[in-house]
Amino acid sequence: MLEISPSKVVQVIFLAREMDVGAGELHAFIDAMNDEEKAQLTALAWVGRGAFEPEDFDEAVATAISEATVPTADYLMGMPHLAENLEAGMDALGVDVAGEEEDLL
């Protein structure tokens, strides 16, 4: 079950798209999340890139917690296509983020 707020995920997506100018802000934003939010964000990216199926989201979260070896911000920011993976993960879980995207623009 998704417990991280969709607006936080959308903020990460937005900052990841602007990585050249928003890298420091993205790193700080992710660092400020609690451990559960970081694990959920990682799990969303994994679902979005096809490493886990949507129905295995809870398992992905548990894996993110148990296998974390580097700071989450460093790991995610090193992931190719982070924004696209997060968008695909949200879509796969059936979370509509249209309202949150409009609020950022």
Rank of each mutant, 00 (worst) to 15 (best):
M1K: 15
M1L: 03
M1F: 03
M1H: 07
L2M: 09
E3V: 06
I4L: 02
S5L: 05
P6M: 02
V9E: 00
Q11Y: 01
Q11D: 03
V12R: 00
V12E: 00
I13D: 01
I13V: 12
I13K: 01
F14Y: 13
F14N: 14
L15Y: 09
L15N: 04
A16W: 02
E18A: 13
E18C: 04
D20G: 00
V21N: 05
V21P: 00
G22D: 15
G22K: 09
G22Q: 08
E25L: 11
E25D: 09
L26Q: 11
H27T: 05
A28H: 13
F29V: 03
D31W: 02
D31C: 08
D31I: 02
A32D: 12
A32C: 03
A32H: 14
M33G: 04
E36G: 02
E37P: 05
K38S: 12
K38C: 07
K38Q: 15
Q40H: 13
Q40P: 10
L41D: 10
T42R: 10
A43S: 13
A43T: 05
W46A: 12
V47I: 03
G50P: 11
G50N: 08
A51F: 05
F52P: 01
F52A: 01
F52Y: 15
F52L: 10
E53G: 02
P54F: 01
F57P: 08
F57R: 13
F57M: 04
E59T: 12
A60R: 11
A60Q: 13
S66I: 06
E67R: 15
E67Y: 15
A68N: 08
T69L: 08
T69P: 01
V70H: 15
T72D: 12
T72R: 15
T72S: 15
T72E: 14
A73I: 04
D74M: 14
Y75A: 11
M77G: 06
M77S: 13
M77Y: 08
M77T: 08
G78V: 06
M79K: 14
H81G: 01
H81L: 09
H81V: 00
L82G: 02
L82F: 03
A83V: 04
A83Q: 10
A83M: 09
E84N: 09
E84M: 04
N85Y: 09
N85E: 10
L86M: 09
L86T: 09
A88T: 13
M90C: 03
M90P: 09
A92V: 07
A92P: 06
L93K: 11
V97M: 13
E100N: 05
E101N: 09
E102V: 06
D103K: 10
L104G: 12
L105R: 13
